[in-house]
Design a protein around this nucleic acid. Structure first.
Lengths: 200, 200
DNA sequence: TGATAAACTGAACAGTGTCAAGATTAGCTT
DNA sequence: AAGCTAATCTTGACACTGTTCAGTTTATCA
């Protein structure tokens, strides 16, 4: 009969899902807790039994997005054998995730909940962990001298191109997936040479 | 006597300034048009005679910030002679502007008003113009083959490191200006090698 | 001087996040 | 199985938000 019970059952998950739907269709600025509650068939006060406030709901989505980005990056790396190709694959996966899921990608770096990164030790933090492993492999072959700098440079390049594509001057290009692919191909090729830069 | 006149005189400018103050102290999320109006000694409806809505006020600040970033980048380039040093100087100026004025930097790329970039032809657009000139100089010496790709790569790297510093995992480092300088020095050194990458 | 337009006020509206008091029910304990 | 406790949800309220609109004030210029 499915008559809605007083106790929803798994409201928390439903709230997260409905909130994400709103974000993806109307953007994060149009997100309203009340609308989310109504969509979930629940009163405006109900969400506060599962989230401290609106920001915490959003933070929950950010963590989910971070995990997805981390997972696809890792999968991309494992699909290759040489460390050069791994690095390239990670970069491509990262940028494509941003272009295909701009709202979710923005969530991860939305400046309010940057605590997602700080909470864990750097070597175990999501994203960093994937990158670190690959760069260490490059170091082992002598293609990288300073792992720390190389990781930041690689991440910086890839992250920068991603955000220029979704929020910057490259935005008009971001709808044409073929063009994006070509660009990403060229840019990530440069990645390897960045790492191979001589010491002085 | 300075008794506040009914016609404020230069309300538009004052609104922009007060809004910026709020943003810099409490962050953009806490910005309220009503508070800005009150701070300017004016009623809640007054701003609407100068801006279509709140977003347009913010867009005004974004344009100002873009101009500042453009100006300091250009100045940095002109302080150097060799194109390699110019590129490096632009990168440093860009990242330092972001670290020293994070709120204003974010404004420029805040996804709502990305139209600032699209409105002008790419070669005359702010920021791009500066970068383009330098990269063309590098091309003239044979250090760059594809100007387009080189520009995007350079901008991407610098922009990525900047946002990783203010909104990403490098945030804890961003308060220590000395550490930031060291990092920027190393990363921008890599810039030149990125451009010097062989064609295939 | 007088008319037109610009600038500003004050009140109102719908919508927001958030909280407290009370109703409802799930789940454990005896 | 009964009853108690804690979790969950509702209802109603509060302060605040962006925005609009009718009316008031003043600058500007013919």
């Amino acid at each position: 009969m499915e008559k809605p019970a007083y106790h929803h059952g798994n409201l928390k998950q439903v709230l997260l899902e409905e909130a994400l739907k709103f974000i993806e269709t109307d953007g994060i600025k149009a997100l309203s807790l009340r609308k989310v509650a109504k969509q979930a068939g629940v009163s405006p006060g109900a969400p506060y039994h599962h989230f401290k406030n609106k920001d915490e709901l959003i933070a929950g989505l950010a963590v989910r997005s971070l995990e997805k980005l981390d997972a696809t990056s890792e999968a991309a790396a494992q699909g290759q054998i040489s460390p050069q190709e791994k690095l390239k694959a990670v970069g491509k996966a990262y940028i494509l995730y941003a272009v295909e899921n701009p709202e979710q990608f923005r969530l991860v770096f939305s400046s309010e909940q940057s605590g997602s990164f700080l909470s864990q030790p750097p070597n175990e933090a999501p994203l960093f962990r994937v990158l670190y492993k690959v760069i260490e492999e490059l170091e082992a072959i002598g293609l990288v001298s300073n792992v720390q700098v190389a990781a930041i440079t690689a991440w910086g390049l890839v992250h920068g191109v991603a955000t220029l594509l979704i929020d910057g001057p490259l935005q008009p290009m971001s709808t044409d997936l073929e063009q994006v692919n070509a660009l990403v191909e060229e840019v990530t090729s440069g990645l390897i040479y960045v790492q191979a830069a001589p010491k002085r």
